[in-house]
Design a protein around this nucleic acid. Structure first.
Length: 112
DNA sequence: CTGATGACGGTGC
DNA sequence: GGCACCGCCATCA
């Protein structure tokens, strides 16, 4: 059911990040909460780069656990994404512009 | 079936 | 600029 959301997230290139709202806007048929929930039920070992999805503040969203946020940050830094002193990502620099138009058309995401 | 919850976001104060 | 509230809708109890 969340394949649609996962498919979009998989399009995020290495070294870029996207916000929940961005994903929701691309998918179009769901709210930001759905994106977050989709990642919440995502199990470890998935091929979905969930670490590249952060909130609109450019910060890593804490799960109920909260400890994995550290891992998420390390994964992002390993991809070349830098954090400022407040642990935030510069969306203006690492923000994802969205998937290729060709990909959108191929997946029937083309905006009406 | 009904009510509560949540990796969020936008608006209002 | 920071904080409180409301809306979003699939999942869970």
């Amino acid at each position: 059911m969340y394949e649609l959301i996962y498919a979009v997230i998989r399009q995020i290139p290495t070294g870029k990040v996207a916000t929940y709202g961005q994903i929701a806007n691309i998918v179009g048929d769901c709210s930001a909460r759905m994106v977050g929930y989709a990642l919440a039920i995502l199990k470890t070992g998935s091929d979905v780069p969930w670490q590249r999805v952060i909130n609109r503040e450019g910060k890593i969203s804490l799960r109920s656990n909260g400890t994995e946020s550290i891992l998420q940050r390390q994964l992002l830094e390993d991809e070349g994404i830098l954090f400022d002193g407040k642990g935030q990502v510069d969306l203006n620099k690492f923000g994802w512009s969205g998937p290729d138009l060709a990909w959108l058309v191929a997946n029937d995401f083309y905006p009406a």
